[in-house]
Simulated scan of single mutants.
Amino acid sequence: MNARYKNPDNDPRGDWKPGDCIGNGERKNGNYTVISPITGKAFTVPQGKHWVYAPKKMEQLIKDNRIYFGKDGNSIPSVKQFLSEMGGRKASSLLMYDDYGHTDMAKKDLKKLFPELEKIPFPTPKPVKLVKTLAKLGTNKGSV
């Protein structure tokens, strides 16, 4: 479990962390009143800011219990970002050797894994770091 994710309201979708509902700058249709369904308290954005969701989308999120108004319903709204819905870091199309290794590292990895090898059996081994990353990108949870 990621320590930043909790479930203070026992949402059946599981652990979540709060995300911002307010963005910088003023936007068309971004300045409206949001009402807490728990207390009826009205919230507006400060000058020079905007709600990041259009009014209809915000209404849908509130109905779906994806907007959190704090334990007592009186806190500035935040969007629930569920751990189960987070996809992790997006893959880069550029795999730099600093991040994923290089052929020399791959040879050293193989020697660690198979110390009995006298010679690397193929010319272009891949680093363990790279293989792990590619396996994560190409599989789903529970894949065999």
Score class of each variant (00 low, 15 high):
K49C: 03
Q60F: 05
S78D: 06
K49P: 00
M58W: 03
Q81S: 04
S84Q: 09
K63L: 12
K49I: 00
K49N: 04
S78Y: 12
Y68H: 11
P77Q: 14
G70P: 06
S75Q: 15
F69P: 03
K80V: 09
V45G: 01
N74Y: 12
K80F: 08
S84C: 07
K49W: 02
N65C: 07
D72Q: 13
D72H: 10
P55N: 06
Q60C: 03
F82C: 10
P55T: 01
D72P: 02
P55F: 04
S84V: 13
K80M: 15
Q81T: 06
F82M: 14
I76N: 12
M58H: 02
K80C: 15
S78C: 08
P77W: 03
R66A: 11
A54V: 04
N65E: 15
Q60N: 12
Y53P: 00
S78M: 13
V52G: 01
F69C: 08
F82I: 11
I76E: 14
P46V: 03
A54S: 09
K57G: 02
G70E: 09
Q60A: 06
L83F: 12
P46Y: 08
K57D: 06
W51R: 05
M58D: 01
K49H: 06
G73A: 12
Y53L: 09
V45K: 05
K63Q: 15
N74A: 13
S84Y: 06
N65G: 06
L83Q: 15
M58Q: 07
Q60T: 05
F69L: 09
N74F: 10
Y68W: 15
F82T: 11
D72A: 09
Y68A: 02
G73F: 11
P55V: 01
G70F: 12
P77R: 15
I76W: 11
P55S: 07
P77G: 12
N74C: 10
K80L: 15
S75I: 03
V52A: 02
S75L: 10
P77I: 11
Y68P: 00
R66G: 03
R66C: 08
V45W: 01
H50I: 01
Q47C: 02
Q60Y: 06
I62Y: 03
V52F: 02
P55H: 04
V45Q: 04
P55W: 01
K49E: 02
Y53I: 00
L83V: 04
D64N: 14
I62F: 07
E59S: 10
H50C: 03
V79W: 05
R66M: 14
K57W: 05
Y53H: 09
W51A: 01
G70M: 08
Q81A: 05
V52L: 11
D64L: 07
K56N: 13
K63F: 06
I76L: 10
Y68Q: 03
K56P: 00
Q81W: 05
N65Y: 10
K71T: 10
K63H: 13
P46L: 10
N74T: 15
G73W: 13
E59L: 11
K49V: 00
G70R: 07
V45S: 02
D64H: 08
Q47G: 03
K56V: 04
V45P: 00
M58K: 05
D72Y: 12
L83I: 05
G70S: 11
I67W: 00
D72M: 06
